[in-house]
Nucleic acid binder design. Structure first.
Length: 275
DNA sequence: ACAGGATCCTGGGGGC
DNA sequence: TGCCCCCAGGATCCTG
């Protein structure tokens, strides 16, 4: 569910609520997430203090004392919130970490359990994990040449390339569609048929769309909420995503929906031509 | 090597 | 109202 803007919003809202505080008691649910929880992780996290919170693509990194790293992925329906300890515990809450000081808890809730929570002993261990998964660069730091080469070097369609976390880290189904619309590129266009001018346009569109979405604290379609429990509002600015049949905001042609790379894909058949 | 499809899981909505 | 099917913001494994 959550893509880069949603994850960035969670991280920004976690920082003032978590940094400087210590995990005291940890409670773990019985149902497994993508990675099964170990007793060792509970032991490691106990009495560790939160020093910093970072984001890499759709990953949340909680840096704790003694180099420990708590790595979290929200999957499709993950929610990471800091709430008063006495607030009702909702169903599908898989991890509760009690915080010292004020009576608050960090909670991880995930209905579909596509999310994951993992612990790494140090910076090197986490970097090795990212290395192994081939996680690509942050969209904001990408150079034109790198992006063009990655796009032109594949026979996959642009939609599939944007969803590939090894090319860019953080773009998902919503922002892929919105960025392709902004760049006026057809989602089914093949990477190898894309010239560098178009690739550059796409790169710029991605950055602009992501930045605007972050300003709006991400998109809340159904499950997504930030660390404070607040919803995002970028869904009100969707121009193609989930707007099948609506008039294109540029040319009034009805927005079309098709299936690409196994995902529903929204585009304007008139503004986004396949050449 | 690469691309596309199936899979993991739960809940909500539409059609009958 | 009930049932069945399809769909959903993601990542990973398998197949051809």
């Amino acid at each position: 569910m959550p893509e880069l803007p949603e994850v960035e919003t969670v991280v920004r809202e976690l920082r003032p609520r978590l940094i400087g505080r210590t995990f005291t008691t940890l409670r773990v649910g019985s149902k497994p997430l993508r990675k099964r929880w170990t007793r060792e992780w509970t032991r490691q996290l106990q009495n560790r203090r939160v020093l910093r919170i970072d984001r890499r693509g759709k990953w949340i990194i909680v840096v704790l004392s003694d180099g420990l790293r708590l790595l979290i992925h929200l999957g499709m329906t993950g929610q990471l919130t800091v709430v008063p300890a006495d607030s009702p515990r909702l169903p599908h809450t898989h991890l509760v970490a009690h915080l010292n000081g004020e009576d608050a808890q960090l909670r991880f809730r995930d209905v579909r359990r596509f999310g994951s929570v993992t612990v790494f002993s140090d910076h090197a261990g986490l970097e090795e994990f990212f290395e192994l998964s081939g996680l690509g660069p942050e969209p904001f730091e990408v150079e034109n040449q790198y992006f063009s080469e990655r796009i032109q070097g594949t026979r996959r369609c642009l939609k599939a390339v944007l969803l590939d976390q090894r090319v860019l880290a953080g773009v998902g189904n919503i922002y892929a569609d919105e960025s392709l619309f902004q760049a006026r590129l057809h989602p089914a266009q093949l990477g190898q048929d894309t010239d560098s001018r178009q690739a550059n346009r796409l790169r710029k569109a991605i950055v602009a769309v992501l930045n605007r979405a972050i300003e709006q604290r991400g998109s809340s379609i159904r499950d997504y909420i930030g660390a404070s429990g607040q919803r995002g509002s970028y869904q009100e600015e969707f121009r193609v995503y989930q707007r099948t049949g609506d008039p294109c905001p540029r040319c009034r042609t009805p927005i079309r929906c098709t299936r690409l790379a196994g995902r529903s894909t929204h585009y304007c058949p008139s503004c986004q031509r396949l050449d």
